[in-house]
Design a protein around this nucleic acid. Structure first.
Lengths: 338, 338
DNA sequence: GGTCAGACTGCATAGGTATGCAACCGGAAT
DNA sequence: ATTCCGGTTGCATACCTATGCAGTCTGACC
């Protein structure tokens, strides 16, 4: 209702100039102890706080980071969002959230809006960025960091887990468990994440003298993954192990195998996931999976975006973070060495 | 790298005044067809887009809504966040996200930061707001809407489900199922949500000639809920039904009962939840639960915040949205009428 | 006491846009 | 032809803060 309190109001009340007030609220400025106290008192009394928007108009820094994300029903991303927000808060930045499907027009539109807000940086999660768009951001001087998804072409930093190595680890584990027919319900093959895990899995199997028994794209979608599981198990030679491209789908697959098809996991078929979302540890699933260390990925993402903001021509980095295989009960174990 | 494109640049290129450019990008302004075309062409060519921050400095409207949320590991809130973002995007608003614990200092701090960004409105989810803070927002003219949590005192709009009625529905259902000893692992009793559901449950039971067999606060936390389940089942007269204050905890309780205590659900004990998160429908849980209609709650929230923004002295409203009981397999069913 | 360095402080302006006001234009009505 | 009016346009200013520059003040040192 009543007008906004401005630095001028505080200046008047404290009997000083507006610049003085500004300086008191700008860390690193030269102000005397006495002045600082006078101003702080007046500000306190009036309930003054600097206007971030007006400030950013001058400094050119809005302290807003745009986050573009496709799914939030996958708890891995919900968790990442929470951790990102907390980590950035620590540094005085905050997240402006945009949901985007993975269609090109959608993403384009979102990035445009994002730039309208003069964001200091952009983090994309589970999003494919066109090279052209990346180019525009670069020209506008806005750093972009891809979380858990890399992008075609150069110019963007990307943080992901070591997907290829992870896929290979899983392959080795299944092979050691004596599985003969290892199938893969992959993550969306239009994503680097989905492709790399599949490639790593194939390489790992071939290293063990096996090959991928069958592979179907699960599109990161529960229903699609369930259908894939159905198809796989109806093959003339059904698999004895299925590596599913992420936990979200893996749990759907387990549900389908157990409750629709009446198959025992892991006795009839082993299931392994990827991500280690919290639910994977719940006893109903007890899912063997490869952990993506969300905490470390988030920390790396935050650090990367901050350096790119403060040092615009820092080199673009691609960081892969290694994660351990968490052996639980959804896949047959390797035999102990005798 | 290269300077930002401003309305002045466009004006120069199009050979018109800066005001003209501004008007072209301000819906509802008076501009001739010819002028609009000239300006749009120039803008297109230069890649100009209005600076939202500078604009908001004048209009006093940032088109940013602050969202304060405590948990994102409860998928109900992750889902709500996604739906909120999409619905607001539709109206040209966007969400600035803040995580806050439920400690007072935490929330205070967050709201202060929020106001620094000159947000047009605040949505709190699963957060308790102090009356004093509410007062400050009101004085600053910033409307606040509480999502799924009401607040002590007046002054704030609140959208929630009909928690009391929901609790009562569950009580009636359990009573009809012939349960004799109905216990409650409640939501956090420091929250209106948790309290109202508990009260409704008690009222519903008493209506059926029963009373609450035992009640323990689950604090909306998985581990606390599991401990509560353990305690309940070790009573000299253990319950034959447990209403758990939300799905998130209910699934933990089911896991604990089944896998740690070796009890069958629903044969040994019935379990009912609240929320109907997507996972509740998954066959591993097949959880009987009361649906909170997220979509409708979000729509109501968006509409409420928008009217409060455009009409500052619109009356504060408390909206309760009714949801159906979804009968699945985690609780013994009422006998068919003979 | 005079000088000088250094620490503060105020003045004036910039940053990008929206908007009240006055000027302008064309056309219709008289 | 004159008047008047509605529709457009440009000018100037406001929104709120940060910062370069120049001026002031303090204290120390010779």
């Amino acid at each position: 209702m009543n007008r906004k309190i401005t630095s001028m109001d505080v200046a008047a009340k404290a009997g000083v100039s507006q610049s003085a007030v500004s300086r008191v609220f700008t860390p690193g400025s030269s102000v005397s102890e006495k002045m600082a106290r006078k101003v702080r008192d007046a500000a306190e009394e009036l309930g003054y706080r600097p206007n971030v928007l007006a400030r950013s108009l001058i400094t050119g820094s809005s302290r807003i980071i745009g986050l573009v994300v496709a799914y939030l029903d996958n708890p891995f991303y919900a968790d990442a969002l929470q951790k990102l927000s907390e980590a950035l808060d620590q540094e005085g930045y905050h997240l402006l959230v945009f949901m985007a499907g993975n269609t090109q027009g959608d993403v384009d539109h979102v990035i445009e809006s994002l730039m309208d807000y003069q964001v200091d940086g952009i983090i994309t999660a589970s999003i494919n960025l066109s090279g052209e768009l990346a180019e525009r951001c670069a020209r506008a001087g806005i750093p972009v960091v891809c979380f858990n998804r890399s992008v075609i072409g150069e110019g963007l930093s990307a943080i992901s887990s070591a997907n290829r190595a992870g896929g290979a680890k899983i392959a080795a584990f299944l092979a050691a468990g004596g599985h003969q027919r290892c199938a893969h319900i992959s993550g969306w093959q239009g994503s680097s994440t989905g492709r790399e895990r599949a490639e790593g899995f194939a390489e790992g199997l071939s290293e063990a003298g096996l090959e991928v028994h069958a592979q179907i794209d699960g599109m990161f979608d529960r229903d699609t993954a369930m259908n894939a599981a159905q198809t796989l198990m109806q093959m003339s030679e059904p698999p004895d192990a299925i590596f599913v491209g992420n936990d979200h789908m893996a749990m759907a697959v387990m549900d389908h195998l157990r409750f629709v098809m009446g198959l025992s996991v892991p006795n009839a078929v082993s299931v392994v996931g990827y991500d280690d979302v919290p639910m994977a540890a719940w006893p109903s699933y007890d899912l063997t999976t490869l952990r993506q260390p969300a905490r470390r990925m988030v920390d790396a993402t935050v650090q990367e975006i901050l350096t790119r903001i403060t040092t615009p021509d820092a080199p673009v980095r691609r960081i892969e973070i290694d994660g351990p295989l968490l052996v639980r009960g959804s896949a047959r174990l390797p035999k102990e060495a005798p």
